[in-house]
């Protein structure tokens, strides 16, 4: 659905903007973030090792070679999600928070332990949704959990700010009625929108190449992520990629 792609691109974008950023893979047992970030061959220790005290945070964090100030804390492939103890996750995250400007928690799908732990200590949420009924329904469920089962909610603080990132958006399919429109999704979820990422082959290509798509300046998805990060940091940018691009004369003649 795009959560790991988004986490990778978002962390990269924040680091590019000069903020020290760590991105943590909470998908224990599956391990995807290091692949998408292109650091899978440099993993020595992982998140679970740090929680158990087998390794220090310093040992486990992988420094990104492309962008300064960007670090990756990979998930373990050999453990399961029960290894994420409440105290352990809290301790590691507060250690990270002391050292970094932003800590991105890449949540696994579903509402199991990994997802709950990723959300529990968060200050802010970015909800990644596809324009499909089932995906939007799941996001609504997650928003409910963010509002009730997080540290902020338990302390009675103000509700966690949550913003929507709509990925794999294909305006042409929206027109055909095969996909929910941005307005439909916003109406159902009733939250602010951070951005729309168009359905794009460049996302797949970038993932396979181990390159966060935000670094692909030529791709529409990469530009859309750059916009979203800028909006997250307080810039006002108009939303793009929400309508079908007009075809040139040649394309129309060729039926492309």
């Amino acid at each position: 659905m795009g959560k790991t792609t988004t986490s990778a691109s978002f962390a990269t974008g924040l680091a590019q903007a000069g903020h020290r950023t760590a991105v943590v893979d909470f998908d224990v047992g599956l391990r995807n973030l290091d692949l998408i970030m292109g650091v899978e061959r440099r993993v020595v220790y992982d998140f679970v090792n740090v929680i158990h005290g087998d390794a220090s945070l310093k040992q486990a964090l992988i420094k990104d070679k492309r962008v300064d100030g960007l670090y990756i804390l990979p998930a373990s492939q050999t453990r399961d999600k029960d290894a994420l103890s409440h105290e352990g996750v809290g301790r590691v995250l507060s250690e990270l928070a002391a050292e970094f400007d932003y800590v991105i928690c890449d949540s696994p799908a579903g509402i199991e332990r990994g997802a709950l732990m990723a959300a529990y200590f968060a200050d802010e949420a970015i909800v990644v949704t596809n324009p499909e009924v089932s995906s939007v329904r799941d996001s609504d469920r997650i928003l409910g959990i963010l509002a009730s089962k997080t540290q902020r909610a338990e302390r009675g603080d103000s509700p966690m700010p949550g913003r929507l990132l709509l990925t794999r958006y294909a305006p042409a399919r929206v027109i055909k009625g095969e996909m929910l429109s941005v307005d439909d999704v916003l109406e159902i979820l009733a939250i602010d929108m951070l951005g729309v990422i168009p359905e794009s082959l460049s996302v797949l290509n970038a993932s396979n190449a181990g390159l966060p798509v935000i670094l692909d300046d030529d791709s529409d998805a990469g530009q859309a992520y750059q916009d979203a990060v800028a909006r997250f940091l307080g810039d006002e940018r108009p939303h793009r990629f929400m309508s079908v691009p007009k075809k040139g004369l040649l394309e129309r003649l060729l039926g492309g």
Partner: peptide, 8 residues
């Protein structure tokens, strides 16, 4: 005053 979400 807040949205009642799926599952709530």
């Amino acid at each position: 005053t807040h949205p009642v979400r799926s599952g709530q």
